[in-house]
Amino acid sequence: MPKGLYVHRIGVILFFVLAVLFLGQGVYMQAKAHFAQYLIEQAWQRTIKDQQPHKPWSWADTYPVAKLSFVEAGKGNESPDEHFDGDSMYVLEGASGRNLAFGPVQIQDGSIGKGNRNRIIAGHNDTHFSILEGVKRGKLIKLLDRNGIEVIYKVMETQIVHESDTRVLAPSSDKQLTLITCYPFHALRAGGPLRFVVHAEAVG
Rank of each mutant, 00 (worst) to 15 (best):
G191F: 04
I48N: 07
P80C: 01
G134T: 04
G74S: 06
L140G: 06
V12S: 10
Q106H: 04
D50M: 03
D109M: 04
L169V: 00
I180R: 00
S58V: 11
T47K: 01
K55W: 02
R189E: 09
G148M: 05
E150S: 15
D61V: 06
A190S: 11
T127P: 06
S172T: 02
I112R: 15
V203H: 06
A122G: 07
M156C: 04
A187D: 08
N116P: 06
G138Q: 06
S111R: 14
H186R: 11
S130L: 08
A190M: 12
E163M: 02
D145Y: 03
V71M: 13
N77K: 12
D61Y: 09
F84P: 00
F196T: 01
T127A: 05
L177V: 03
I121A: 02
A170L: 03
R117N: 11
V155A: 01
L179Q: 00
A95V: 01
Y6R: 15
W57P: 04
G191A: 05
A122P: 05
V168I: 13
L169E: 03
F15D: 10
S79I: 01
A101C: 10
P56K: 01
A200E: 07
L132A: 02
H186Q: 08
S173D: 06
F185V: 02
G115Q: 07
R117W: 05
Q159K: 15
L143P: 04
I152W: 10
K175T: 07
H8D: 12
P56I: 04
G24P: 04
V71F: 01
D126T: 11
P104G: 03
V20S: 09
K55D: 03
M29D: 14
H8G: 08
I120S: 00
I120F: 01
K55F: 03
R46W: 10
P53N: 02
D61K: 13
Y28R: 12
A95P: 13
P56R: 01
Q42I: 10
L177Q: 00
V203L: 10
A73L: 09
V20M: 15
G148Q: 06
I121C: 02
K154H: 05
F35R: 14
L140C: 06
D81N: 12
Q108D: 11
P80G: 00
L188E: 07
G134D: 04
H162T: 05
L132T: 00
R167H: 06
F35Y: 14
K154S: 13
V105M: 08
E201I: 06
Q159S: 12
